[in-house]
Amino acid sequence: MLEVKSMAEFMASGESPDVLFWVGCAGSFDQRAQKITKAFVQILNKVGVSFAILGKEEMCTGDPARRAGNEFLFQMMAYNNIQVLNGYNVKKIITTCPHCFNVIKNEYPALGGNYEVIHHTVFLQQLINDGKLVLKDGGAFKGTKITYHDSCYLGRGNGVYEAPREVLQALDVELVEMKSCRSKGLCCGAGGAQMFKEEEAGTTRVNFKRTDEAIETGANIIASNCPFCTTMLVDGVKNREKEEAIKVMDIAEMVALSLKDQ
């Protein structure tokens, strides 16, 4: 059973959490991404992190609207979110979505929203380094061949390449890199609001191309850090009829499966 309290509940009891977990729209509504959300909460519960969510008060950050060109809508969403966040005096935010991460961390400050924002893979790496998150020996993924997909907004966009890889190393996996990785990482095809429309005419789809790179590594798992990348790669793997051989998993899901029993 997951233990999740909202910011409003904390306020009502006169307490305040250490961090706010920004779930994001995908993490809240998308069935595949909900699993990532739950896996991450499971870890937070296990480690005993004092956290809250905004719950029904959370709204889209405005990222897809801004990237599509609708600055008005973005500004509306940003205004409302910042009002809520500042109203609760939020200082530290963790999110499982690199798009939310980028917008809140880099684009909200100009609009009056200043918070310490941490992507969940970086947070997991910190927990492991601090010894707060203990993984079971010979865990679920020991020796498994895994390739890591750099999301554009965490990698190139914000320069986070190593933390997620360090978490995977802590899981004792065999990490293999794709042809394009780190700053040269290939997009999954979802960014820039592409997630919400049909791709323009071309010779192939971006997610198919990226999935092919992952298949070439011979890995059994594609590790991701973004709910949108996860969706795109799952589709890619399905299209190449490799669902049996290759799974797409968020790093949080992999960590949740490797938690040491009490």
Partner: peptide
């Protein structure tokens, strides 16, 4: 904008999410 983007915009405006889900369901997970 393509039709799908207009739909996404109106979903964000009315449901606070790019998809057609009720904001009341946001923490249903």
């Amino acid at each position: 904008a393509p039709q799908e983007w207009n739909l996404m915009f109106s979903n964000i405006e009315t449901n606070m999410a790019p998809w057609k889900f009720s904001p009341d369901e946001r923490d249903a997970w």
